[in-house]
Amino acid sequence: MATIKVTRPKLSVGEKVYFGSIFKGMIVTLRHAFKSVMGKSRGADELNSSGLGITMQYPEQKWDDELPEYYRGTPALVTDELDRERCVSCQLCEFICPPKAIKITPGEIPSNDEWAKVEKRPQEFDIDMIRCIYCGMCEEVCPEQAIYLRPDYIVTGTSRKEMVHDKDRLYEIGGKRVGLVNKWNELK
């Protein structure tokens, strides 16, 4: 390994005493505090701040209108135009999920079902929202465009069980999504 020689800066007596810099530092802090109280923090206007610093006051003020298109909130399953559940339980999301939040029990579609040709769909699909880190890997890896991160971010519950989104809940959040590639069309 290369050895990097660095020279420590020579400090003047004034600098060595520290008091000057500490005093300067306190001025900086104080000035910032005054600005903050006056509501003149940098970015306070653009970020629609509450008047103190740049911080919003959450339940009253929300940023929903300004959420970007790509905002990664809670993951959810979607159905297509014909209300077919897009997920075929390939379990790639379960595999890629870094915190192992997803648990899928695959199942076969009965032969009398309208979509029997798809053969496979999840019997159970649980996402543990306590574990989920909103990384969006599941969305990225999905070969069927079945799982999306929705802009919902208010995920609360009073028990651990409540924080596990089951299949019904996931479809409820995800809803119908149109305009996606439809692999399982009449040609298939």
Binding site: T29, H32, A33, S41, S50, L52, G53, T55, Q57
Partner: peptide, 11 residues
């Protein structure tokens, strides 16, 4: 509160 103000927070 003071530290919040210094750090652009509310406290």
């Amino acid at each position: 509160r003071f530290s919040a103000i210094i750090q652009d927070r509310v406290g």
